[in-house]
């Protein structure tokens, strides 16, 4: 299973490296979202700095949507999906591989967006360990949920509009928890709930979706 996962993840990442869709389209889009938030909010009154964690995760969410859609498009052309199905790879491995490739891309995006938030919104970076743990847990959950819902919406016309409708309400807890945990790490915002609880929530979310994906991906792939 893990060997298959590495194979699939390697394949997807190689495709991304060669096609450059992630670097040429998704990354500029993510930065653009940050700029748009600055237009929408008043940059002079510290509003952006205070809302930075939430805006950062919303930008990550939108970019994740694009990355997941991209990961599904890769399999939809010219019978590549069938080839993957017939390849004899473990479906759980395929799921982990595709989710893993999304995780790697999202990590890169989060580094970029993090730099963007520091530069554009004037956030003082702090609490690197807590931020890192938050990012890892949130990204694993996002990638697993995205890959699973991406597979569920596959092969349907109107998938572009169906995926956000399925994914966004499902990852609402990730947005809430990741935002609060990041704010705690940065030391902004008053908090009633311990940051550890938010991290635990993110962890449980990731575990639930990874487990669901490992079990359900096989039957979902066989169907068509």
């Amino acid at each position: 299973m893990w060997r298959d996962a590495l194979l699939v993840a390697g394949k997807d990442l190689r495709i991304e490296a060669r096609s450059r869709v992630a670097t040429n389209q998704v990354a500029p889009f993510a930065v653009l979202v940050l700029v748009l938030f600055a237009f929408a909010l008043d940059p002079d009154r510290g509003l952006l700095t205070r809302a930075a964690a939430g805006l950062f995760w919303v930008a990550v969410l939108f970019s994740a949507l694009l990355a997941v859609q991209r990961a599904q498009t890769v399999e939809s052309g010219e019978g590549t999906g069938d080839a993957l199905r017939l390849s004899g790879l473990d479906p759980a491995g395929i799921f982990l591989g595709k989710a893993g490739a999304v995780v790697v891309q999202l990590f890169a995006l989060e580094l970029l967006l993090g730099a963007g938030v520091v530069v554009l919104y004037g956030v003082d970076p702090a609490g690197y360990a807590a931020l890192g743990a938050t990012a890892v847990a949130a990204t694993l959950g996002l990638a697993a949920a995205g890959t699973l819902y991406g597979a569920l919406a596959t092969g349907s016309r109107g998938r572009e509009t169906l995926l956000p409708l399925l994914l966004l309400p499902a990852v609402a807890p990730v947005l809430i928890a990741a935002t609060r945990a990041s704010e705690a790490a940065l030391g902004i915002g008053g908090l009633d709930v311990a940051p550890g609880d938010w991290l635990a929530l993110l962890g449980v979310f990731a575990v639930v979706y990874v487990a669901f994906g490992v079990v359900a991906f096989g039957p979902l792939m066989e169907e068509e």
Partner: peptide, 17 residues
Amino acid sequence: LLAVAVVPLNHFAVTWW
């Protein structure tokens, strides 16, 4: 089943929030 599985997560997230 996924939708039901996230109900407790959503619940904790919004209650703590």
